[in-house]
Simulated scan of single mutants.
Amino acid sequence: MYADEELEMVCSKAWPPVVGEPLGQWRLRWADGFTGRANSALAVGDPGMTVPAALAAVCDFAHARAIPPAVQVVQDSEQERAVAAAGWGEQVGHAAGHRVSVLTGPLPAGPGPGAEVLDGPTSQWWELTVGTSEPSVAERHVMTTGKVGYGVVSADGVTAGAVRGAIVDGWLHVSRLAVRPDFRRRGLARAVLYALAAWGRAQGAEQWVLQVAVDNTGALALYSGLGCTEHHRYRYWGPGQRTCEDPQS
């Protein structure tokens, strides 16, 4: 059984930033603003200094790269209590939701009609998962680095659903599941997930892990129906006005 912080490290390796620097056991991350996971400090383990000093280093790293300072920290952990005591607050304005459920489960077996996993992303895959057929350098780095499979499911001659899977330390990390609005409620999400699970087993994985915002009730219900349960939660925290001043402002 993986501890919460160990599983956070697995997920972080499956979602690599363009720039990643260690801060003790913490990890400073930058990807030109593409997703909170790749543009926050993963605050797990010992930063090798006091938490206030580590948070100051997070601020310096973020300001130097023109992103908002933020930390990703396991909910209700000792680290989260220390971050709160240093004057930081929950980053409630985080666009994708600042509270996230980390789900795990055995890889399911089932039919995936019309679904397959590609070795490389297509333009339609990019359109569904990122919103553009011409991803930026940072988007391409985050989404394609490592052992990655690109799940697609077709309907009416187009790519109607897509998902990303990455193999890390024997886990299949699942992200960016998307189905075109006109094709929803046809079972396509399940189909492409079943195909991805079969691909993951072929790569030696036995379990998958997913990070889903707690207010994304539809996704949580889908994954629950596939046998996933909550392992833990994490939250994003940001500085107060006087706890992280930008020296350039």
Rank of each mutant, 00 (worst) to 15 (best):
A162M: 02
W30G: 04
L172A: 13
R140N: 11
E90K: 13
D182G: 09
D182N: 10
T132D: 12
V179Y: 01
R81F: 03
R235Y: 13
I67M: 11
V92Q: 15
Q124D: 15
L226C: 04
G45R: 13
P69M: 09
P113G: 01
V168M: 08
Y2E: 11
A86Y: 00
L220I: 10
S224D: 15
E245A: 12
V168S: 07
A202V: 06
S154T: 14
Y223R: 00
T122Y: 02
G227F: 03
L42W: 10
V214I: 13
A66Y: 08
A70R: 13
T159M: 04
M143H: 14
P17R: 02
T35L: 06
W237E: 11
R184E: 08
G93A: 14
H63W: 15
S12D: 13
G151D: 02
T217I: 14
G161F: 00
A219M: 09
R140I: 03
G165F: 00
L42Y: 07
G218Q: 08
R242V: 13
A178K: 06
G24Y: 05
H63A: 14
P17S: 06
P17Q: 04
V142L: 06
A70H: 03
S249M: 12
P181K: 09
C244E: 07
L107W: 01
C228W: 02
L222A: 05
Q207H: 12
V163D: 02
M1T: 10
A70L: 15
A219H: 05
D46L: 11
V192M: 01
E127S: 15
A41F: 03
G105V: 03
K13Y: 12
L177Y: 03
V212C: 06
E139H: 07
Q248G: 10
H173I: 12
L177M: 10
Y234Q: 09
A85L: 02
R27Q: 15
A115S: 03
R233I: 08
L188G: 03
S123E: 15
G238E: 11
P69N: 07
P68Q: 15
K13G: 13
A162Q: 00
L7E: 02
P247F: 01
H141L: 04
L210Y: 04
G157L: 03
